[in-house]
Amino acid sequence: MPEEKRIIAGIYHLSKRLSRHFTLKDINFQVANGEFVFLVGPSGAGKSTLLRMMYMDDVPDSGQVIVGRFVSTRMKRSTICSLRRKIGIVFQDFRLLEDRTVFENVAVAMKVSGRGMSEIKREMTDILSRVGLYHKRYECPAALSGGEQQRVAIARAIANRPSILLADEPTGNLDPYVTKEIMELLFKINSGGTAVLLATHDVELVRSFGQRTIYLEDGRVVKDSGRVFEGDLLRSISDSQVERRAREFRDRRIGRGEKQDGTGNTNRPEGGG
């Protein structure tokens, strides 16, 4: 990416006690724009829990999660909705609406963002072609293979052009051949500028790709192969800093949005109209 590197998601001194036996302890890492990051660890290491904090399905006991302009310490129900429209999430079990077609499953993410039907239809061709499912747009999930279902989930996740995609064991239910296909798809999406944070317990998978890898074990980061930012950015930030950063982020986004509007290749400015 020719663009300057900047943090689009960060976890700062996050601690969370889930049970007597398990606590996430002082987690720190940041993800830069366009980065591909593996989050690896054995079953029960806390990967899913950590991702849940990132899409703010749960709140840390202490520390902060900052994703885009969203700060975990100041989230309301309505801001959680806004956050989720700005990120993409993919799971092991696909989580598709069983009674709706491929088209509708992807459209739903765009609809909740308030985008118009004509726009949705216009963009759908491109989105479904990217995941190779345009010809199956009127099928329901039950008529699709696991790999195809995951492609639908990925299409849905990228439908709003998120700056980051969170994937929790996206290939966990798939055979090696399909796993490879899905990984290729995710890399393709990543090369289009979307950062990907992929949680998996499959160390082999991670090794074969040689990307930045964060190792999580028993609730701790034991190794981070490629920290993008060192030093003072690893502190959690004060309220005024949060505000400044959120403002900067917003300004930059709006600026970018105007510049790139011709290409139609950017996040929509907040609010939508």
Binding site: Y55, S78, I80, C81, S82, L83, R84, R85, K86, I89, R95, L96, L97, E98, D99, V108, A109, V112, S113, R156
Partner: peptide, 12 residues
């Protein structure tokens, strides 16, 4: 299940 999915994609 559908409700949870709608929440995940940011439905109000």
């Amino acid at each position: 299940k559908s409700i949870e999915i709608l929440k995940l994609v940011g439905a109000t």
